[in-house]
Amino acid sequence: MADRELSTTGYLILGLLADHDWSAYQLAEQLGRGVAELWPSADRGRYALLNRLSDDGLVATRQEHTGKRARTIYAITPAGRAALATWLSTPVRPPTLEFEGMVRVLLADQGSLDDLRATLARTREQALAQREVFARYAAYISTTGGTFPERRHLFALANTFMVGHYEHIVAWTEWAEAHLASWPDTVSPATTHGDQVREMLAAGRDALPPEEA
């Protein structure tokens, strides 16, 4: 059964168990510490996935008691470590983005200019808040080593990306708000602001290889 295809979330759980045995609740805590922003579906179906990992022999379980309360503790098995190592050697899938604010931007011609401005403002607030979260993670790991001190060099790589990601969103919202300043609505700029639209698209064109630009 262990040859069934495993989801990225499954490998993520194996990775968390690779250095520490956890209960399902403790795994949920770890998944909430910056992982959800990288993999939003990480906590979805967690219990069913743990059962599957156990059925496939990739994790082992044991019972621990605190007083009269019992909890199940999960530990990675040698087969689980082998499966994780094999997965890490395979080609990575392209990154994806789930961004409701951008969907609203794309459909903004069906709403008001105030709606669009509100979307940009809220997106900026959210990005600032998330940037602070990862900045605090960086400070915590720097001073304590974090929950996985043996992985802090890897967390440093990921944390720098996440801070930069949210900084990019903040900068983009400010850039977008500046361009909206002369728009009378969300419809007419397609024809009345042609020069501005071409200027905004120039950055995209500049990203093409020289032979295609």
Rank of each mutant, 00 (worst) to 15 (best):
L17P: 08
S23Y: 05
Y25F: 13
L27R: 07
E29W: 12
Q30C: 13
L31P: 03
G34R: 03
V35T: 13
V35P: 03
A42R: 06
D43W: 01
D56A: 15
D56R: 13
T61F: 05
E64W: 04
E64V: 11
A70V: 14
R71S: 12
T72W: 01
T72H: 05
Y74D: 05
L84N: 01
S89F: 05
V92G: 05
P94T: 01
P95A: 11
P95F: 08
E100Q: 15
G101L: 02
L107M: 10
L113Q: 06
R122A: 13
T123C: 12
T123Y: 00
E125Y: 00
E125F: 03
Q130N: 13
R131T: 07
Y140G: 11
T143S: 14
T143L: 11
T144D: 09
G145V: 13
G145H: 11
T147L: 15
T147F: 15
F148D: 15
R151Q: 13
F155G: 08
A156V: 10
L157A: 14
E167R: 11
H168F: 14
A178N: 09
A178C: 03
S182F: 00
W183G: 03
P184H: 07
S188I: 05
T191P: 00
H193R: 10
Q196S: 08
A203F: 09
P209I: 06
P210G: 06
